[in-house]
């Protein structure tokens, strides 16, 4: 006995309108969810621009000293901008090379070893440590002995960045096909040379964008800096000694002030910080797309 499949017509059945409605409702709710997610972001940016634009637009905002007389109205934010760049730069200089080396170690030298797993576990735990706790840690191990300084802030931010850089580097290295390494080995290549000359270049776009996102995140941190760089208004170009200032701490101190001059400087600093983070983000995109395009066009 043979069974023939019923062959339904390809015209829409009566169930179709319901299916279409369902589809329309689902699509609409997805769009709605997107709007709900994006609207606050856009509002934040627009609000900060509307509040901060006048400050940022005043001549000398980016270069002039912060008024020592804090009630004064007007620019600038120069010391905080250089402070933020200096602290974030020092943190990057410490965390990125170390983090990439850590990622290389985890992925290339200890993939399945117990030691590697322990490191990976702690890196994951470190990623979840609240930034204020990191600040407290640096306060105890560094500030209590050596005093407040930009370097102490950089240590705290570096500790925050390190696990992110380690884990993104590891993930990016993991994405490099095994065959690529094996091809290099098949040419008589040795492990270290292969990692440096083949694996890292192949993973570079991802590692760079991961590192720059970590930088962007660190640049906006406030809590760990309060413990570590202190709070001053004057510029301090000495990385290792004396309290310093940063955009985020300026926002923190000025935004709660009762004086309008300070509040508008806080908005200006907020806009500047968003701008800096934005530039970092764009740079990371450009860098990684440039690197990956270099070999794929």
């Amino acid at each position: 006995m043979t069974y023939t499949m019923p062959r339904p017509s390809i015209t829409r059945s009566s169930a179709s309108p319901w299916r279409q409605t369902k589809s329309a409702v689902m699509t609409a709710s997805l769009v709605l969810a997107l709007v709900v997610a994006v609207v606050p972001l856009v509002l934040i940016i627009l609000y900060v621009i509307s509040k901060g634009w006048a400050s940022v637009n005043a001549p000398g905002w980016f270069t002039a000293d912060i008024p020592i007389f804090s009630r004064a109205v007007g620019p600038g934010m120069g010391p905080a901008i250089t402070g933020t760049l200096m602290i974030t730069g020092a943190a990057t200089a410490m965390a990125v090379p170390l983090g990439v080396l850590g990622g290389i170690y985890l992925n290339e030298y200890s993939a399945a070893s117990r030691y590697g797993n322990v490191i990976r576990f702690f890196a994951d735990v470190m990623t979840g440590v609240p930034s204020i706790v990191m600040g407290l840690f640096v306060y105890v191990i560094w500030v209590l002995s050596f005093g407040l300084s930009a370097f102490a802030g950089a240590l705290a931010l570096g500790c925050l960045m390190l696990p992110i850089v380690i884990r993104t580097s590891e993930e990016m290295l993991k994405l490099v096909p095994r065959e690529l390494r094996e091809s290099a080995y098949a040419l008589g290549g040795r492990k270290a040379g292969t990692i440096v000359r083949v694996v890292l270049p192949a993973a570079a776009p991802g590692i760079i964008s991961g590192a720059l996102l970590a930088v962007a995140r660190a640049a906006g941190e406030t809590a760990p800096l309060l413990f570590t760089i202190g709070f001053v208004n004057q510029a301090n170009s000495d990385l290792l000694h004396d309290p310093n200032t940063a955009l985020s701490t300026q926002i923190f101190k000025n935004a709660i002030s009762v004086f309008p001059g300070q509040v508008s400087r806080a908005w200006g600093a907020a806009l500047t910080l968003i701008g800096i983070v934005f530039v970092f983000t764009i740079l990371s995109r450009i860098a990684s797309s440039f690197l990956s395009r270099k070999h794929q066009s």
Binding site: W61, A72, G261, S289
Partner: peptide, 30 residues
């Protein structure tokens, strides 16, 4: 890719460049 960067640089340049607004005098102190 480059559009946002150009925009950003433009914004910053505009921010730095405008000199029309007067410097508000520090409150009585300065």
């Amino acid at each position: 890719m480059l559009v946002p960067l150009v925009l950003t640089i433009g914004l910053l340049a505009a921010a730095c460049g405008s000199s029309s607004s007067s410097t508000p005098k520090g409150d009585k102190g300065g």
